[in-house]
């Protein structure tokens, strides 16, 4: 196995184009586990940690561009005010050591249905910037995942960044695990309220072949929430919202939980997070 450490993004893209057997590695919190478990024997490990640009974030117009190499710890510490939902999700990732190493881009690259970063990116309508020697394209997160651990990432592409609008309303993220820390999601849910445009964003994790939105639930809530009066949330609305979120999932039974429980838990989480977010909005 070769180990290559390109100093620039252009070099990295060139290697990626030449070596389809290359596996990019940043924090290594997924890739090294795969190697240690002998699930993968890449021809090349393409180390991206020397590329400084990858670990920066900045506002670009109305959007935030977050480099793929930004760690969960930095998301929590530096972006908690702009991306509260993503920061809440980042707090639930692994242990402090994992959060120091693991990156948002790596999370997307693994494309696990259980990736903690995915639901908040779905809820806030983020886009993924993919790059190759052929050029750069932006893919909405909702179109990025194609199956369990599969995405639209082409063999010659690397994930450069995530583009996302800073929160314009309350955001929430909740995750179920069978222990109180360091656990892969049994299921998770993210919610973003966009009061300016009277929209609701959602993201479901670990309850379908890919992370996905609960579109019907979004439309229902957007239509039912009393945006004008900011009146208290009708319990029936929250409950129906929960039901619609649960209905949007297509979970399976596996070692981490049953399909029935996942659906049930999603309904509870959706109901609770909508209640909290609405309360936060109404002050």
């Amino acid at each position: 196995m070769d180990f290559m450490t390109p100093p620039t993004w252009a070099d990295a893209l060139a290697i990626r184009a030449e070596r389809p057997d290359a596996v990019p590695i940043a924090g290594g919190t997924d890739v090294m586990v795969e190697l240690n478990f002998d699930r993968r024997r890449p021809g090349v490990l393409l180390d991206l940690t020397r590329i400084g640009d990858l670990t920066t974030w900045a506002m670009d117009g109305e959007l935030l561009r977050v480099g793929a190499g930004v760690s969960y710890t930095r998301i929590i510490e530096e972006l908690g005010d702009r991306l509260p939902g993503l920061a809440m999700a980042a707090r639930t990732v692994g242990s402090p050591q994992i959060r120091n190493r693991g990156t948002l881009g790596g999370n997307l690259g693994s494309a696990s249905p259980a990736g903690d970063g995915h639901p908040p990116l779905l809820a806030s309508g983020a886009q993924v910037e993919l790059a190759s020697v052929r050029g750069t394209r932006l893919v909405p997160v909702a179109e990025f995942f194609t199956g369990p651990k599969r995405s639209v990432l082409a063999p010659d592409e690397l994930i450069a960044a995530v583009w996302v609008r800073p929160a314009d309303g309350p955001e929430q993220f909740s995750k179920i695990g069978t222990r109180n820390a360091m656990v892969i999601a049994v299921s998770s849910f993210s919610l973003a309220l966009h009061p300016g445009r009277r929209e609701v964003g959602t993201g479901i994790g670990s309850a379908a072949p890919t992370p996905r939105r609960a579109t019907e639930a979004e439309l229902f809530a957007a239509g039912q929430l009393p945006w004008d009066t900011l009146a208290a949330l009708e319990p029936g609305v929250a409950r129906r919202f929960g039901e619609l979120v649960a209905a949007a999932a297509s979970p399976i039974d596996d070692v981490r939980g049953t399909a029935a429980y996942r659906r049930h838990a999603l309904a509870v989480l959706a109901q609770r997070t909508l209640t909290w977010a609405w309360r936060d909005l109404c002050g």
Binding site: M88, R91, T92, Q172, F173, S174, K175, I176, G177, R179, N180, A181, L269, R272, W276
Partner: peptide
Amino acid sequence: FPPGGTANTTRGE
């Protein structure tokens, strides 16, 4: 902290 730990699953509900 409540059941669920840091995963923000309940505010007492």
